[in-house]
Design a protein around this nucleic acid. Structure first.
Ligand SMILES: NC(=O)c1ccc[n+]([C@@H]2O[C@H](COP(=O)([O-])OP(=O)(O)OC[C@H]3O[C@@H](n4cnc5c(N)ncnc54)[C@H](O)[C@@H]3O)[C@@H](O)[C@H]2O)c1
Ligand SMILES: NC(=O)c1ccc[n+]([C@@H]2O[C@H](COP(=O)([O-])OP(=O)(O)OC[C@H]3O[C@@H](n4cnc5c(N)ncnc54)[C@H](O)[C@@H]3O)[C@@H](O)[C@H]2O)c1
Lengths: 215, 215
DNA sequence: CTCTAGCTGTGAAATTTGTCACAGCGTGAA
DNA sequence: TTCACGCTGTGACAAATTTCACAGCTAGAG
């Protein structure tokens, strides 16, 4: 079994390699990729072991080939098909970003329970009422659901999407969803992240002050 | 030194306890809190060790007292003072959420380099030009910066905020920022999270199919 | 009062995750 | 062609994190 952290780093390498390739870099060493990703060279080599790509001791990794291997490993050459539920302020921000950007994420459809928001397109994405959820995702072969409804609604929304056959979610609502072990949920809780950053900010800030006091 | 994971869980307990208290729960056992937080009871007890709060073997933890201890540990009774840089679609979503919500996060000011966006308020938050950054944050005692500018601009923005004395960041741009060891950065990379969810979705989905085939 | 069921707090073990360090290799230099 | 440098791939080790498991306690029942 391969760990979440490894997967996160691999996706990061992928985006860094894309950047490097546009800059014309053809080969890259583990220590260079490590610097870009802010990890150790050993970590990079370890991670690349799991996708089975081998570099060359003298020239490092071939950027194009490595990207190819990563693509194959992640197997989303045609992009990641997703749907979004909850076209509020956050949902609209995500639509505007992913419908225009050139990431490999495709939002195929959006859903909302509010009749004011349905029946039209936002950033080029159709917004459907929740009643159309089942049939629409049955047609589309969706890999991942983006949950941007209020916390109180999130559980019922995921339940519906799971019934529709979706196994992966990114949940922006500040609640822990209950899902079967065949379903993966990545929680992006902004509030919690800010609290975390604030905690460490304060502790680092105090440490800095103490050190200055010692001088 | 206390770990990031522990802090994340503690903030989560805090929000769960808030919910429980509004529902009139006065006492809670480690296994109950564990169920809510989707962790093990031992994990809960371990985590609570670090804040030095002790429960009672017969009645469990007193919800009010535990909240009090957590508050004291995090020491943000007056709310977490933050500033936001980059009033684009994501920045506006965050403003609308945190300026109206009843979380303990306070966005004191927003900044943008685009003159079209400055000089007015969005969701009740003043948007200043970047030239006013230094003086404004000097006045405000800010704990945490929210970075919602394009990736290409993120590094220079953090550099400026660090110069202004901020030690904590939540970075939404898909780049790894270079910061001194006295500064904490929490990266919220939505693209990367979706890719991760998609990867595990596919692997769980395949596993499910295999199991069904075996029957 | 005494007893007991079932919890907490916590050393110790287990597991997961990251790092070290070095054998082995490929390339360019001579 | 040979050599030497500096990298990769990886076994072994180290650190961090989680779980186990149990002594010790406490409120309520009898
Ligand atoms: N910056 C942010 O906006 C922000 C920050 C932190 C967390 N969040 C979380 O993200 C989620 C969305 O936040 P938001 O600010 O966009 O909220 P919002 O109220 O602007 O949007 C919520 C949307 O969900 C729709 N909705 C409600 N119930 C639904 C249901 N049962 N089925 C389908 N659609 C439904 C509503 O019609 C609305 O369009 C919330 O859980 C919030 O806690 C948002
Ligand atoms: N849903 C989303 O919107 C989304 C999703 C994933 C990642 N992101 C990331 O979040 C960031 C913001 O995304 P967005 O969609 O809001 O982009 P946006 O283009 O809508 O907004 C960016 C804002 O930053 C301002 N800006 C640009 N350069 C600046 C500078 N040097 N100083 C101050 N302000 C500056 C711009 O004027 C603009 O208002 C980006 O890094 C993006 O990659 C956003």
């Amino acid at each position: 079994m391969i760990s979440e952290k490894t997967i996160s780093r691999l996706t990061n390498y992928q985006s860094l390699l894309r950047q490097q390739q546009t800059q014309g870099t053809s080969h890259i060493f583990s220590h260079q990729l490590a610097d870009l990703a802010r990890v150790t060279p050993a970590q990079v080599r370890r991670d690349l072991m799991v996708i089975g790509y081998s570099g060359n001791p003298r020239t490092g990794y071939h950027v194009g080939d490595l990207q190819e291997s990563l693509m194959q490993f992640f197997a989303f050459s045609t992009g990641i098909p997703t749907v979004l539920v909850g076209v509020g302020s956050l949902g609209r921000a995500l639509l505007s970003y992913f419908m225009t950007g050139r990431s490999n994420i495709r939002i195929l459809a959006a859903f909302d329970s509010d009749p004011m928001k349905t029946g039209r397109s936002i950033s080029g994405c159709r917004v459907y009422p929740m009643t159309r959820l089942r049939e629409t995702i049955a047609d589309l072969t969706v890999t991942c659901g983006l949950i941007t409804v209020p916390g109180s609604e999130a559980q019922k929304v995921v339940d519906a999407l799971i019934t529709g056959g979706i196994h992966g979610f990114v949940n922006f609502a500040p609640v822990r969803l209950k899902v079967p072990p065949t379903v993966f949920v990545e929680n992006l809780d902004v509030t919690s992240s800010i609290e975390k950053a604030a905690f460490f900010a304060r502790s680092y800030s105090l440490k800095t002050q103490e050190e200055q006091a010692h001088e």
